[in-house]
Amino acid sequence: MSMNAGRKRSESEEQGGPGDQKASPARPPFGKKQLPTIPKNAVPVTKASSPASATQATNGTHASYGPFYLEYSLLAEFTLVIKQKLPGIYVQPSYRSALMWFGVIFIRHGLYQDGVFKFTVYIPDNYPDGECPKVVFDIPVFHPLVDPVSGELDVRRAFTKWRRNHNHIWQVLMYARTVFYKISTMEPLNPEAAVLYDKDVQLFKSKVVDSVKLCNSHLFDQPRIDDPYAISFSPWNPAVHEEAKEKMFTHKRRPEDQPKGLQVSGLSWVKPGSTLPFSKEEYPLQT
């Protein structure tokens, strides 16, 4: 349901505004900072602060806590993505920066059926006040909206203006998926593909098939970006994968994956539907 809504939105916006502003926005003074996730076993770099750097921030607490705000905004986005359960899309923030997410998309039917496309999401560091995130395919897929050289998907046409609270990264991912099912040729990044699609669908189709084959043939390549959390594929190896597969199929919705010993249980004697304390008749019976 929510998925459909998202699709509709991105489609309507797609038609509404052809985003052609590709110029990079003016970078804020802190433009180049990167926010690493904090790995469990990483040792924080402790360092004596120089008086100069201690006084450089003038806008109160924001300078000190800004990175935390950004980090949590992105974590919140990621939580939303998980909640959406987008079909065929998997993402994972990189180890080094919450601003870079690795992803892969499985196309299950249509022209691009069987395509497995790896991509990277780049989120502007002034998120959520900047431009919309970018989606760059590892291998430029043959598609009217994918730049044949850089592999970048034209996302901006769907999100002409990135509006905080309204736009979310899951919508971008949703859009990246939609593009392969409903092909648009308006103001293409790949004019050749656009023209072919309009003029010679058969040839377009065969090019797409080639492109899908090419992408899938590089599936087992090392990830393009060296990062511990980069998504990498390997051929089926029962010794490694069988167990994981078993787990996936037997996995219950509510597993007891909470650490034992930390079992906390609250108390309630409120009858459902009542707002009076001790409205439940019975004590919870021991099992």
């Binding site: 990079s24 970078r27 802190f30 433009g31 180049k32 900072k33 990167q34 360092k47 602060s49 750097s53 201690a54 300078a63 000190s64 806590y65 800004g66 990175p67 935390f68 990189s94 080094r96 920066s97 601003l99 870079m100 990277t120 780049y122 989120i123 502007p124 560091d125 970018k134 760059v136 730049d147 050289v149 850089s150 592999g151 970048e152 393009r224 970006i225 060296d226 990062d227």
Partner: peptide, 30 residues
């Protein structure tokens, strides 16, 4: 985080500031 491939991408997308904002800037004390 900024291997050759990234630089290539940065160049190809025509943006001089690394394009994908994964470069780390000044030190921030937290």
């Amino acid at each position: 985080a900024q291997p050759g491939t990234m630089e290539k991408e940065a160049c190809s997308s025509g943006q001089d500031d690394s394009g994908h904002s994964c470069v780390i800037g000044s030190e921030i004390h937290l």
